[in-house]
Write a protein that binds this DNA or RNA. Structure first.
Lengths: 340, 340
DNA sequence: CTGTTAGCGCCTTCAG
DNA sequence: CTGAAGGCGCTAACAG
């Protein structure tokens, strides 16, 4: 098994060349004739040669491993999409992902980063499971790093986050296009970028359409179903209730569905709803299906490792970038024209 | 940065001993006096020494890396819990996880396994995202492997899956204890272990309580919300409708909630519901909260890497084990006594 | 265009 | 109880 793997030496012998030639043939380096290069390659193939990355990493200082450190791999259902994007991009670059979870605990984080560094990862994706500001840990000083769903004020680090304001504008544009003018916003209460960005998008969209901002059409609550239900119930009880609701996220939207049901309002005939998250287990399951803005989890995962790879390769356009990703609208059945 | 890391050599010089002594001190091997051992350790600490795992792995043939290959990291929201368990167990063993996703595609799977092997992983967790039979890929022949949420007929491989039948019995026991006698089962249609095991558990629980199995109280459908809703509607339209429903999973249960609502039945006053998955985003969000059986994702993740570590260490009790994990009941508000 | 020759940082017999 | 020396598999000067 392991121990009997054929090495570069055996290939050299079998091909009647030196190990150098084999190394060059396989790695595309050196100045070899295409003939020998091909011959060596096929001999290697025939012998079932596979490189030992520990050895090459030790020698070349490039392990081809990307470290992925995240705060909570598990608590959010989006984590999978992020990881998938990152993993696929890594595979495309002949790299592999080594993951570590910190449970939002500094000691664990440092241990994890340490473990990654001991394994000589080439770089690190420092990820959060929801968009937030972070401070880069000491241990990462000098290590090529890109931030995912997180940002700092340092301009020498690349980072990617969702375009929160754009997401809100897209949601609002959809409602406005359907003819709604009284649109309520069921917002979030936490002091995070999503809270501020989405509210800003809501206001900007109204302003663009010459609709006055009406405080009575905005509530904030925790971003979960039960608080969302309460907030929605309050809003729908108003004399001049909104004809549509834009919700901070799908969980709040689910609360809004429940509130609508309790109030005897049919969706989308009496009330239209749009939200953000496109969390399929909810959005697809709700009756009717919930139109929602998708956060680009997969795409952020891909972008982050592609970016890191480019920076590691020292590519020309490898100057650090801080980008905001667009968030696409996913249509289902929760939006219709305003009633009457 | 990387290149200037202090090595075993510097530590030796600073401590006034040979590299051998340093190596022994740090790894706990050799026959050293406690005095020197401690002294060397503190010198190493003071110099901020960190081992280079590539080098030690190359030499000792133990990389301390566990490969984790799974079919779909992303499509199920449970994946995170599995990974978390695996990652934490690995960290506790001073190991680290290298992950690879196969998208259920053989070519990708082989490439992924290859990449893992090239990095000299010590062993592999071969995971599925839902309980199923698998055939171990050729490439894994001779590589220490444990199966997670998957099984084969090979008795030389350890594996862990949920106890499907036990889960169903637990759910049924809860309903029976509440006094229900007419209990409907909203089953799944796929030919997978969960389908058969849960139905078997349902029947066994009835038999134990001397309740005759009634075919009209069993339906099967795809395990999603809309089909579940349809199945539940049919069942609740029966003349002598059941007073409680046991659902294959939370998504079907959500359909049952919707059907109950459409039928004007209140939960739990008119109808009790229990299901399997304890998928919190749904179970907590439904009104009232859904009592559900949790699948032991985190625990399976932990168990798998602990098992693998034990087998790698050649421990005495390291004979392969195929185990079924118990699934605990999580109480919420969807169960009450039968009406009237 | 190809081969020789040193190590990468660490572990591990084998002597002292 | 401690040290010297060789080599894990590969890469990268540097010669030919």
């Amino acid at each position: 098994m392991m121990s009997k793997r054929v090495g570069i030496r055996e290939v050299a012998a079998a091909a009647g060349v030196s190990v150098t030639t084999v190394s060059h043939s396989l790695s595309g380096g050196g100045q070899l004739s295409d003939a020998t290069r091909e011959r060596v390659k096929s001999v290697a193939e025939g012998l079932n040669y596979t490189p030992n990355r520990l050895a090459s990493g030790l020698r070349s200082k490039r392990s081809q491993i990307i470290g992925f450190v995240s705060d909570e791999i598990s608590t959010t259902p989006y984590a999978g999409r992020v990881l998938l994007g990152a993993q696929e991009a890594a595979a495309a670059n002949d790299q592999v992902l080594m993951i570590v979870n910190t449970n939002s605990n500094d000691r664990l984080e440092n241990r994890g980063i340490d473990a990654l560094l001991q394994h000589s990862v080439d770089g690190i994706i420092y990820a959060r499971m929801y968009h937030q500001a972070v401070q880069l840990p000491e241990a990462l000083a000098g290590v090529p790093t890109v931030l995912l769903d997180a940002y700092t004020d340092r301009l020498d680090l690349s980072s990617v986050v969702p375009d929160e304001e754009g997401a809100a504008r897209t949601a609002m544009a959809h409602l406005l296009a359907a003819g709604h003018r009284r649109i309520g916003y069921l917002g979030n209460i936490d002091d995070i970028p999503a809270t501020h960005g989405r509210l800003a998008g809501y206001r900007a969209a109204l302003a663009e359409h010459g609709i006055a901002f009406d405080e009575s059409l905005v509530t904030v609550s925790e971003s979960m179903t039960a608080p969302g239900r309460a907030a929605a119930s309050r809003m729908l009880a108003q004399p001049d209730r909104p004809t549509a609701l834009f919700c901070f996220n799908d969980r709040i939207a689910m609360g809004a569905y429940q509130a609508a049901q309790l109030a005897g309002l049919a969706i989308p005939n009496d009330l239209s709803i749009v939200s953000i998250d496109n969390f399929e287990v909810l959005a697809d399951a709700l009756l009717p299906g919930l139109t929602s803005i998708a956060l680009p989890h997969y795409e952020m995962g891909r972008w982050a490792v592609e970016r890191l790879a480019a920076e590691l390769a020292g590519e020309a356009d490898a100057a650090p970038q801080q980008i905001q990703m667009p968030c696409p609208l996913v249509l289902r059945q929760s939006v219709g024209p305003p009633p009457h």
